[in-house]
Each structure stands twice: as C-alpha cells, then as structure tokens.
Nucleic acid binder design. Sequence first.
DNA 1: CTTATAATTTAGACAAAACTAAAAATATGT
DNA 2: ACATATTTTTAGTTTTGTCTAAATTATAAG
Lengths: 217, 217
Amino acid sequence: MTLAEENYLKAIYHLEQQFPKGVSTNALAEEMKTKASSATDMVKKLAEKDMLTHIPYQGATLSEAGRGYAVKVIRRHRLWEVFLVEKLNFSWDEVHEVAEHLEHINSDKLIDELDAFLEFPIYDPHGDPIPDKQGHFKHIEKIVLAKAEVGSTYKCVGVDDTSSKFLKYLDSNAIGLGTIMTIKHKEPFDNSIKIALEHSEMVVSQSVAKNLYLKKV
Amino acid sequence: MTLAEENYLKAIYHLEQQFPKGVSTNALAEEMKTKASSATDMVKKLAEKDMLTHIPYQGATLSEAGRGYAVKVIRRHRLWEVFLVEKLNFSWDEVHEVAEHLEHINSDKLIDELDAFLEFPIYDPHGDPIPDKQGHFKHIEKIVLAKAEVGSTYKCVGVDDTSSKFLKYLDSNAIGLGTIMTIKHKEPFDNSIKIALEHSEMVVSQSVAKNLYLKKV
DNA sequence: CTTATAATTTAGACAAAACTAAAAATATGT
DNA sequence: ACATATTTTTAGTTTTGTCTAAATTATAAG
Ligand SMILES: [Mn+2]
Ligand SMILES: [Mn+2]
Ligand SMILES: [Mn+2]
Ligand SMILES: [Mn+2]
C-alpha cells in the first residue's frame, strides 16, 4: 500500500461509521481535501486491489482486507500520538500532524515494540481507542455532552473534533481527559449548557457540547 | 525537499567524503541504486534549487544549504537509530532500514524532543557521530583495524559497513562497540589479522579488518 | 592526432496521483 | 412524467521520479 492508498483507506474507514451503507465519492473527496474525480480514480484502484467493493454511482464499502489495513494504520497513528504526548512533551493539539506522517512507517516490530514501550495503552490522547495487534478495539461507553442529563456528574473521556483550535479552547478552560463536571442547566434557546467544574462554572456553546464525550461517574 | 531529494542529498554528502572534488553521476547512481540518467535529472533539479553546483560532465558539489540539509537528515537518521536500540529493543543490524523511513519526518520539535529524551547522544549504534542542532559533528579519532599496530590494544568504536550480514557476523563473534582487542599478528599473505579478545582469540579476514574502526587505549 | 572506450546527458516514455472540463447517471421538484 | 439540479465518472493534462535508447562529451590508447 502506498502512502496515498493508506490515507484513503483510513478516510473510508472513518466515513463508514457515518455512512454504513456505502461511502460516496463526494464525501470521500471532501474528507481527503481533493476533487471527486481523484477520489473516483483511487476508489477504482483500491477496488482493483480488493481493498473495497465499488458499485459505480452507488458508493464504496471496505472489504475485510481493506478494513484490516485501515485499522492497522489507525493503530499506528494513535500509538505514535501517545508516544509524542507521554515521552516527547507534545500537547494533545500538536500530535495529530506529526502522527499523520509516522503512521505510514510500516514495520511490525517497530509498532509492537512501541506498544510495549508505552505499556500497551488503550486510549490515545484524544480518548480514542487504540486497536490491539489483532485489530480489536476496546469499546468505550460514552455520550456526547449535548445529550447529558441536568443534575448528573460526568467524567470527560474524549473529543470528537481534534483540531488545534478546539483543543486549545479546552486547555484554556481547564478541560481535558479525566475532568469531572456536573451539568447545571441546558438552555433551550441556543442549546448552550452550563457546567460546573471542580473550582468554577462555565457555559459552553452547542458546538462545544457536540464535540465533548462524557461518561457518567 | 521531497523524500527523493533528501535521499539524494544524503547520498551526495556521503560520497563527497570519498570524492571531495566532485561526485560523479555514475557513483551517485550506484549509491542510489538507480540509473545514471535518473541521477542526472535529480542533480539538475537540486542545482536549480541551489542545493548544489553542477558542471556538466564534471560532477556535483553540495552548496552550504545542501550540506546543511544533508546533515539535518543524517541527524534525524542517527537519532532514530539510537531510539530504536535504546528504547525499542532493536539490535544494531535492524535499525537502518526503519531509520531510512523515520529520517524523512520533518518536524523540528519532534527531533529536538527526541534528542532530549535520549539525553543528547553523541554516537549512533554504529559508532557514527550525531550532529547537534547546529550541524556540528563531534570529531571522533579512529583508525581502521587493517592499519592497527601489532602488539597494541584498542577499543572498537565503529563500523564502516552497516549491513545486517556484517553486523551479525560481529555479534556472533562477540565484537561490538566498546570491545577491547589486542593485535596479535598480521598475515602478509592474505592481510588477515589475528586478534585477542577478552576471553578468546580469532583471525579476521581483510574485508572485516577494513570495516572495523578502533581507538587506542 | 586519431580512434576506441567509457561516462554523461538528452530525448522520449511510463506510472502514480493529482487537476480541469465535459459527459453520463442519478436524484429532485412540480 | 419530465425538466432540472446534483453527483459521479470519463477524458485529457500535469508533475515527480523513474526507465531505455540514442546522442554527446571526456578519457585513454596507439
Ligand atoms: Mn490524530
Ligand atoms: Mn487521536
Ligand atoms: Mn543507518
Ligand atoms: Mn548508523
């Protein structure tokens, strides 16, 4: 698999969560920040390699081989993110770009040893699960802040948006993985939510509330 | 710089040690395991980018910028090799191939933090010096085993050939960086050399003797 | 000095991965 | 149902880095 093919497989894998009955050319092109014609070309190439099935005009679906390969790339990406945060003093908003490159280095020994060196982490710095060598994910129970119940207390366990902007916003408000919060009030007018942290209270907008994952404590 | 350009710069840098008055197209093509016409094309491109000067039919010489870039890639390569050996249990014959890929990941923070994490190593697992952030090498005093004096005692400080075959040969004879040896006899007939290690004696061929670096103790 | 050989460059082609523009298929609205 | 809008595919280019084959320049020998 070339670098470009690996990136497409990963993109299709992520889009399949959202579109389980087939990933459209336009969605894929948007995810890859490229044009629809390029996406078509690559989908045809990956179909030729039996990484996916493609019905023209209907969308693409990963084969077992394609899904396995995508999961492998995701495993590498997330392990490197852990390494960068735990060992090289990167913050959670700095790791993604570098991990996008590291994830393409193809050496089983490298990844297995890295996994052991990091003591077999289960979650990456954004709370996303790291598949094991066999490609199995540890399922993580989580709800999005937007659907949390008023009066209940939760622990922050993940983020959906991993953009630097969003993560820095969270940093500046002392919200990170493990942060405990209680839902004080949901404002029906604009879907903003008032939350209580350990030493402060704050109101977060709907777009924040849709990108923070919580678990009841 | 693209991946291919970085590899060519590194190759030219290494060949300049051997051919200080200019690297020939054929030598470069051989080093890069490609054809002379491809080497010519790349040399012209690198000349266009002011990474080197090229007089047609006469050879290529790195510019300051080109040399600086080559040294940067070498620094990355050797730091990753240290990481693989020190932290991920790679042996010295396994690191080169993976480091060939890792060396192309371009992030100053990544390399500076890695350097600090490894506690600023000065030599890589093959005894080669690691340039610092400014591109300065620590000069290492060493002679090749083939030119060692009979009767003197030396410490092994490096290898020239870093092929897996050669390194595994050394492993199987308990020779590594730091190994102490005394030169017992030089055989004029085939230039083989009898050496005494801590607990054994052995005879090494000329091709081994030309690839082991020593320092008098 | 002329010729043979070797090294180097040029010309033309190809594969990968992208693009633009145009054609074809599908989906939508009345 | 049918015209229109949207999505997807096809056709034809482009760039990067490679190749083969042919032409050019340098080097060596007689
Ligand atoms: Mn990431
Ligand atoms: Mn992540
Ligand atoms: Mn190496
Ligand atoms: Mn080395």
